[in-house]
């Protein structure tokens, strides 16, 4: 005869908690829909949503490629039916676009140079300082603009560089006539350097952290002055960070829209501005798409060349295996 549990027996008073029920249900569900024998593919299942989400972008590129093969029919303002490479020919033969591309590439190069020049000491001081207050302050100064966004930052620069702005007022104090600081090429490059600085420092800092302080001490104990130890120890060891930062800054600057639009005042258009104008001013979608694809190719070629010469630097994802 089975034993009848008494009222105080924990087996009868214990109630299976709801949370356990939910967890069991989820575990069972998982076992049913994703049995353990599927586990070799679990990694793929986890990464699939991300692949699909980025697929949206790839789909967009294909759509653009399709659209770039139709010219705009000036009579009906509809894209032509036939496939043609005419748009690409127009872009390549056009002297205007040649100028715009040269300007963008030149500006991107200058931006990389000046940004790295400023970012390297900044990151170095930030990593090496012994004072936690200094480090925190430098970090906050860096992160604020990063989060504020490009439009507001360009707006601040507009106020500063305007004819009646702060910079000209300061020049006026030392007796210099107001000069036009805005709507020219240097203003755009200055804006880009200011915009890229946080990106560059944040990419450089981990690379500098990885360099043990002792290597520099060793270099100086062997008689190197700071310039030599910087040139022969710090910079070679920070190379992955410099490449990563340079790539990010270069591609972002090359393809920027807001700085040329706002600080260039329409006279300093980059490729992105030309593309925008084709889509929204002249409504020549095909030509705009062709330009955009050429920009993608140009950017990828530059990135590819740099990576194949110097390696991917710190751009790899996936962390420590």
């Amino acid at each position: 005869m089975p034993e009848i549990p008494s009222k105080d027996d924990p087996r009868t008073t214990f109630r299976y908690p709801l949370r356990w029920r939910i967890m069991d249900a989820l575990n069972n569900g998982l076992d049913r829909f994703w049995p353990a024998r599927m586990s070799p593919y679990t990694g793929w299942a986890l990464i699939m949503p991300a692949l699909l989400l980025v697929g949206l972008l790839v789909l967009g590129l294909f759509e653009m490629a399709e659209s770039s093969l139709h010219t705009l029919d000036r009579a009906t303002f509809l894209p032509s039916e036939a496939y043609t490479l005419e748009n690409y020919q127009t872009v390549i033969e056009s002297a205007t676009y040649g100028r715009v591309v040269t300007r963008s590439v030149f500006a991107a190069g200058l931006t990389v140079f000046f940004t790295l020049l400023l970012a390297l000491p900044y990151a170095y001081i930030m990593v090496r300082t012994t004072s936690s207050v200094v480090r925190k302050t430098l970090l906050v100064v860096l992160f604020l603009p990063f989060f504020i966004g490009q439009v507001v930052r360009a707006y601040g620069l507009l106020i500063i560089l305007g004819t009646t702005g702060v910079a000209n007022n300061a020049l006026g104090l030392v007796g210099i006539e107001p000069i036009r600081l805005l709507f020219n090429f240097p203003a755009v490059v200055f804006g880009l350097v200011q915009y890229m600085l946080p990106f560059a420092v944040l990419m450089l800092a981990p690379a500098l952290t990885a360099i043990p302080r002792e290597t520099e001490t060793a270099a100086s104990s062997l008689g190197a002055n700071w310039l030599q130890s910087f040139r022969h120890v710090v910079i070679p060891m920070a190379k992955p960070g410099l490449i990563g930062a340079g790539l990010v800054v270069g591609t972002l600057a090359l393809t920027d829209f807001a700085m040329p639009a706002m600080l260039g005042g329409g006279s300093q258009d980059f490729i992105a501005n030309a593309i925008y104008d084709q889509f929204f001013r002249t409504a020549d979608q095909g030509l705009g798409a062709a330009l955009a694809l050429l920009l993608v190719v140009l950017g990828s070629v530059i990135v590819g060349v740099v990576i194949s010469i110097f390696g991917a630097g710190t751009l790899g994802m996936g962390g420590k295996k």
Partner: peptide, 9 residues
């Protein structure tokens, strides 16, 4: 991919 490219795509 440049933002203008992804955006327009």
């Amino acid at each position: 991919v440049p933002l203008i490219g992804s955006g327009i795509g």
